[in-house]
Design a protein around this nucleic acid. Sequence first.
RNA 1: GGAGAGAUGGCCGAGUGGUCGAAGGCGCAGCACUGGAAAUGCUGUGUGGGGCAACUCACCGAGGGUUCGAAUCCCUCUCUCUCCGCCA
Length: 423
Amino acid sequence: MLDIKVIRQNLEECQTALRHRGDNTDLAALVALDDQRRQLEQQRSALEAEANEVQKQVGKLKQSDPHHPDIDHLKQKANQIKEKIAALVTAEEAVRQQLHQQLLTVPNLPHPSTPIGSSEADNRVVRTWGEEYKPRHPVLPHWEIGEKLGILNFERAVKVAQTRFVNLVGAGAQLERALINFMLAEHSRRGYQEVMPPFLVNSQSLQGTGQLPKFASDAFRCQEDDLWLVPTAEVPVTNLYRDEILDSSQLPIKHCAYTPCFRREAGSYGRDTRGLIRLHQFNKVELVKFVLPSESEQEHESLVQDAEHILQLLKLPYRVVELCTADLGFAARKCYDLEVWLPAAGQYREISSCSNFGDFQARRANLRYKTKGKKGTEFLHTLNGSGLAIGRTMCAILENYQQPDGRVLMPTVLHPFLGYTAL
RNA sequence: GGAGAGAUGGCCGAGUGGUCGAAGGCGCAGCACUGGAAAUGCUGUGUGGGGCAACUCACCGAGGGUUCGAAUCCCUCUCUCUCCGCCA
């Protein structure tokens, strides 16, 4: 959530920044609402002071003389003030709610360093790692080689659930599990504390990270319970510290977490209908950081490197892309995507998204920290990134490690986690 | 699912209708004492909104009610703990 105070002070800059990401919220209207709110609050607060004064008088009188003739008069006066207050409170609350609800739907402002652009074509390739795998033999797309090897089964998954689900079989299920274990082990080794959070979260958590209220239709919901299936571990992990005041000495806090992710993929009909690329349920290992604002940029860079590290160990060619303002997610101010090389299609596909949210999520989720010896509290910064999406990693392995004879070798680093070295 | 108990400031804990934003302790910070430290003593120490100075308002799990006045009384909800039941 944006800070209305910041908007008030930099109306033009904020408006321009939003326009760069294709958002046309009228910030001046929000400021007008805030003016209204302040005015009502001042009136109310003055009346309340008056009422408190009268109450004290009643108290004093009652103690000295319980039947003092002025008491009834004062009570009457207090009641009159109370009525006025009640009217103001109603008006104020309405304005406050309206302002709040509107602010919740305004996306984050892009960081000044985020390239300005109008579509994903304006994203910037920052660096490329490894060589694109272009063997002489044809490479089968992962879903074909997967079904051929008997490790991916879509038909039965569709019977059991719906389209866009998969059933992993035998060595495939094992590979999925090995990838999860490998990634968690590697991130833990590099200083991320592993957590296993709830896979169902309440509405407040989704609001905290920004999925609600605007993107309700992207998530699966358990209507009866006000619980939602997590679309990403970002939601439960970031909300772990909701409404807490952390000590600055605790920061940065770094967590890694495995969760399944559930997404309705509304609006993506016809896209990536085959294979593991776009499913309603997929596994992911996520990295989440809570950091001091002064350190958020360098922590972001190192987060990207931690995700890249996994691809490097797996020896999968990839590139790092910095998203332009138009392609930025709702809550992000700056974002790098890692795109892995998929030889069957001859293209790079997103396998990780590493975002810096600034204090946007911290405001929504009320994530604060306090510095010893310093007055007051401040909002911290949140960052997260996939490290990595498991299913898409499996795609990349099935294609990049595919041999002319149809076998698929396993990356060396996975051997300790697997019972085999090739499929 | 059934029965009971509880929720107060960073922590512990007092407070059953008025001067309580809240005793006391711990912790923390500053000062004094000391060569330095410990111990001791003194002082200070919640969050948020408005003004941005004085000041003012709100907040004792959440929401509502009674009252001139609620941490204190009433109602609803949430959560925690104990016992029983069920269960991976």
